[in-house]
Design a binder for these strands. Structure first.
Lengths: 236, 236
DNA sequence: AAGAAAAGTTTGGCATGCCTTATCTTGGGT
DNA sequence: ACCCAAGATAAGGCATGCCAAACTTTTCTT
């Protein structure tokens, strides 16, 4: 109450971001182990840090029961995510930085970006709502449009939707897909599913592709595209 | 010899930058006290850090005799300075960030900028050689054109030159000057000097101004403009 | 329900990194 | 020859976070 909320560090940012992501994935408190795995730390380290985050008012922590972000924690997470996604988009768009490097660069800069620079970048980009990987960008007021998505793999033959992103923004996959003209925003129809976890035959924006292995699991699709134009379209 | 030279931290950057600046000002080893004052630290702190910098091979330190940058140290300093000045220019130019905030922002980002992003920014700006304050920007190979400059105050009546920068890039001063149309690159003639440290009457690009107080001390002028165009001109 | 396994917490330690104060040391000037 | 300011050193503090190991709680198994 007395202290100013200038409590930030790369580590704190990363914890909140990780908690946010895990918490959003399946709406439950986040376990210490899940965090430890994600952050590649020991569970002991995480436990210690969680106490600190609790004292900072960023999370609520029921011992042995997992953590949840408080509204402050959520705000912090969304701010960092906003930074990250704006930066990715900016670097790719304004500076033509190649896909695969954008993520790493943003990972560093997100912790350092001032509110002011954030705003300038957002303005320059026309206040975009999705980043180059198709992930939604929280607004300046930290509202985020989390449309529910399903993995491409989970679609049945005949179902269709809009390809919105590759989970975790894996640059390898994105490059592979981009090389075949499969980009976030594209309209996907599932034409055929081979049995026993085999590949899918899909059509993306008219052209057919066979996608197997990890790919259909990683690709996220939003059902009912409703023909609404995405905020920004991407060029190949 | 065995260790990689990935030795960087904001503090180390700042020490090297400060040493570089002080060393360049008057070509002598830099005293501990001068550094302490500049960095706003106690001399004890500086002494301790100097040992470390010595071990890192960034400086040579003759005890009680001051320090000099080694070639590695100089390289580091120039790299940070390059980052700083590129960032200032980029923020001002590409993002229209106002003068007075550019410096603070660059001060943070300079420590974090990757070589790759540096290069992209430099390319975007057309590999500029001077920053918005008129300071030279080291090249990617870390060569810097340090033209000798004199303070405007030191000029005699009748001498003239090119206004190249405001020392320390004081944003207040720069704003004041810019408001009067006095910008780096302008041609300055000293028309009259009032005695006893009084103000100077100068003409800048044709229009006359009376400049007194700290201003003439802070303004740096390059003699013999030789009519060479500055690499980039600035708009008001 | 007992006991084992899994999950989570605590404790103590450690490594950086950099700063401060207090106390010596030194070199240069008179 | 002496003194003093500049500088060096020593000892310590503080903030961040990490790990390993021991301990506790929950959950799973039978």
């Amino acid at each position: 109450m007395a202290t100013k909320e200038s409590t930030r560090s790369a580590a704190i940012d990363d914890y909140c971001k990780a908690i946010y992501t895990l918490q959003t994935r399946d709406d439950e408190p986040v376990s210490t182990n899940a965090l430890a795995e994600r952050l590649e730390l020991t569970s002991g380290s995480v436990s210690g840090m969680l106490r600190k985050l609790g004292e900072l008012g960023l999370i609520t922590h029921e011992p042995y029961r997992g953590v949840r972000l408080t509204s402050d924690g959520r705000r912090l997470a969304l701010e960092v995510i906003r930074h990250h996604r704006l930066l990715e988009l900016y670097l790719a768009e304004a500076l033509q930085m190649p896909w695969d490097r954008v993520h790493a660069e943003a990972e560093v800069l997100e912790h350092v970006l001032s509110d002011e620079l954030e705003e300038l970048i957002a303005a320059k980009l026309g206040h975009p709502t999705i980043d180059p990987h198709g992930d939604p960008i929280p607004t300046a007021e930290l509202e985020i449009a989390e449309h529910p998505t399903r993995s491409l793999e989970s679609l049945q033959v005949g179902e269709s939707g809009r390809f919105v992103r590759v989970s975790d923004a894996d640059p390898e996959m994105l490059r592979y897909l981009a090389g075949r003209g499969i980009l976030p925003g594209g309209h996907v129809d599932v034409i055929e599913r081979q049995p026993f976890g085999g590949p899918l035959l899909v059509s993306v924006d008219g052209s057919e592709h066979t996608l197997g292995g990890e790919l259909p699991r990683a690709m996220r699709v939003e059902l009912e595209p409703a023909a609404a134009e995405p905020t920004r379209e991407r060029s190949a």
